[in-house]
Design a protein around this nucleic acid. Structure first.
Length: 228
DNA sequence: CGTCTTTGACCTGCGC
DNA sequence: GCGCAGGTCAAAGACG
């Protein structure tokens, strides 16, 4: 049984859904005011997605406003929706919109206690350099002895790399379906090798193979279809 | 024999 | 411009 706790984010659609983010980001500073992780069951993802999409659908503020917090009203709506739940507050700016993926990537290799955050200067550099559209990405972390989780799709490994400051190599996979450009990266969490971090990039243009009906109902299958 | 994995080389982007 | 690190390629080997 997969551990369903996960941290998910998708940049292209402005959807940011976080669960157990504190596990990825030891200290919330600069752009994140978090006191405790946000947690919700897997079947709450769709309402969360709608809410977050609505929240994030207003035009991006000007670059000069990059360091300004999310308008209080929007933040309050988000907080209200999760009243009674542990809550992660989000601040939105054009810079950290682009920085989400990078920040998350940075966090993968960080040690507990490291500072996490993006300086205003770095944020503006990231924003300036990322005007091209990037494939949507999301990642999640699971407790598993198996590196490559069966997600219903067929993958071919095309590379492996030792990442700096980590003991475990990162593996690169591509979907084997013709014309499908989806990729995924699989690596062990540096601070806790029992955890597997899987990062998906792109969207499948086909349905998963249904070799195993039980698998098609699994949580990981639902995770993939959340973004399809 | 076809498919998949491994792995060193190469490419690219970024920081200094 | 240079060096480093991450990402990708592709030839060779393993496996069924």
């Amino acid at each position: 049984m997969l551990n369903q706790s996960a941290a998910l984010f998708e940049e292209q659609d402005h959807v940011i859904i976080a669960s157990q983010l504190a596990g990825f980001i030891p200290n919330f500073q600069t752009n994140f005011n978090s006191t405790s992780p946000l947690e919700f069951p897997i079947n709450m993802h769709q309402p969360c997605k709608s809410l977050a999409a609505n929240l994030m659908s207003t035009p991006l503020p000007s670059l000069e406003a990059a360091d300004q917090p999310l308008p209080t009203k929007q933040k309050d709506e988000f907080i209200a929706h999760f009243a009674g739940s542990q809550f992660l507050s989000l601040q939105r700016s054009p810079a950290n919109y682009w920085a989400w993926g990078d920040l998350m990537s940075d966090c993968m290799s960080m040690k507990v206690g490291d500072h996490v955050g993006v300086s205003p200067l770095k944020m503006k550099k990231i924003y300036k350099g990322r005007r091209k559209v990037r494939e949507p990405r999301f990642c999640f972390k699971t407790m598993s002895d198996i590196d490559v989780l069966d997600d219903g799709y067929k993958w071919r490994k095309y590379g492996q790399k030792v990442v700096k400051n980590t003991q475990h190599p990162r593996s690169y996979y591509r979907c084997t379906q013709d014309n499908c450009r989806v990729k995924k990266r699989v690596e062990r969490f540096a601070d806790d090798p029992r955890m597997v971090i899987t990062t998906y990039e792109g969207r499948h243009i086909h349905s998963p193979s249904h070799d195993n009906d039980d698998e098609s109902r699994s949580s990981i299958y639902q995770l993939n279809h959340f973004f399809s």
